[in-house]
């Protein structure tokens, strides 16, 4: 069953690669013209087209590009003429760092608060928590980011840097304080959904026959939650977490732009502006792959957390 999911994932990635490639083909204008500008001579344009393989039929270009992807070669940037790998390497790792910190904080917090809220159903803590999470969920990420900046680094308190300033050649994690605000923004954006979904799932589970049975067996409440209820909530919650993490990959564009964080999002904005087709393609594929991998992990967790699916898959 896991193998089947894996196969589907590969298929999805291939489909995405076709779509991404076709769309970059459809972009108006000539990449060579865009790179060289209006003053370029026809000879230079022709030479660049040759260099970018623009004269080959589109399917050949697709397979050349796909072949490169498979061996980890993302192509040559049209703008800088350098390798896309080199251009993106550091930015990808910077973004991944941001996402990992955000995930590591938000997953336990979301699940814990969601469970806690479900256990106190109908009481003040539950109402407060669901109320706050609804408000946070309703706010766009840039509003949260601006509010945090106002609160923590400019007008009210001046504790944290509001923008990321990494000198060339240094890495983002050399300045941990600069990471706080972007991470906090991402966490605040993602956690409310996790709380709400965990709460709903846990409410269903807590109303189930086996939880009532566990209580009637005299199982202490703590053990009821940890041993009888949580395993059933893991599968659905993993799906929600995956959705949120996948969203992070896209949502990070706005947050990075806001805090001038040198990551994927910024690279994306820049690349689109200068019509750097190779970089846009590469970034699209990276984000797509991230979506697919995260969802695959959620599916696998769902299967592993459910003995019924697990035993069927081992048959």
């Amino acid at each position: 069953m896991i193998l089947k999911r894996l196969g589907i994932s590969v298929f999805v990635l291939l489909a995405v690669s076709v779509v991404v490639f076709v769309f970059t083909l459809l972009l108006p204008g000539d990449p060579a013209q865009a790179i060289l500008g209006q003053q370029a001579t026809p000879e230079r344009l022709a030479a660049l087209r040759e260099q970018l393989n623009l004269n080959d039929p589109w399917y050949e270009r697709y397979f050349t590009w796909l072949g490169g992807l498979l061996v980890g070669d993302l192509g040559t940037s049209a703008a800088t003429g350098g390798s896309v790998n080199e251009l993106l390497g550091q930015k990808v790792s910077a973004s991944v760092l941001l996402m990992i910190i955000a995930a590591v904080i938000s997953i336990p917090v979301g699940i814990l608060l969601g469970t806690w809220s479900a256990m106190r159903r109908g009481r003040t803590t539950d109402h407060t928590l669901t109320g706050i999470s609804l408000v946070l969920a309703a706010l766009p990420e840039f509003v949260i980011g601006i509010a945090l900046t106002t609160l923590l680094s400019t007008t009210v308190f001046q504790l944290l840097p509001s923008v990321t300033m990494a000198a060339p050649g240094t890495r983002v994690w050399d300045y941990p304080l600069q990471l706080v605000l972007p991470t906090l923004t991402l966490v605040l954006v993602v956690v409310p959904y996790m709380i709400r979904m965990t709460r709903t799932t846990m409410l269903d589970v807590l109303d189930s026959g086996y939880v009532e049975m566990a209580r009637l067996k005299g199982v202490p409440e703590r053990q009821v939650i940890m041993k009888h209820a949580l395993p059933h909530a893991i599968g659905p919650v993993a799906q929600v977490v995956a959705m949120q993490l996948a969203w992070l990959a896209g949502g990070i564009v706005v947050v990075e732009f806001l805090f001038r964080y040198p990551g994927l999002g910024q690279a994306m904005v820049d690349a689109v502006q200068i019509r750097d087709v190779q970089v846009v393609q590469a970034l699209s594929m990276i984000i797509a792959a991230f979506y697919v991998v995260v969802n695959l992990i959620a599916d696998v967790i769902g299967i592993l957390a459910n003995p019924k699916l697990r035993t069927e898959s081992s048959k």
């Binding site: 189930s208 026959g209 086996y210 009532e212 049975m213 566990a214 009637l216 067996k217 041993k227 009888h228 395993p231 059933h232 957390a305 459910n306 003995p307 019924k308």
Partner: peptide
């Protein structure tokens, strides 16, 4: 206590 529907009352994960 022995419940009405064992399919619902036994914990499927244990």
């Amino acid at each position: 206590y022995v419940p009405q529907d064992p399919a619902l009352s036994l914990n499927g994960a244990l």
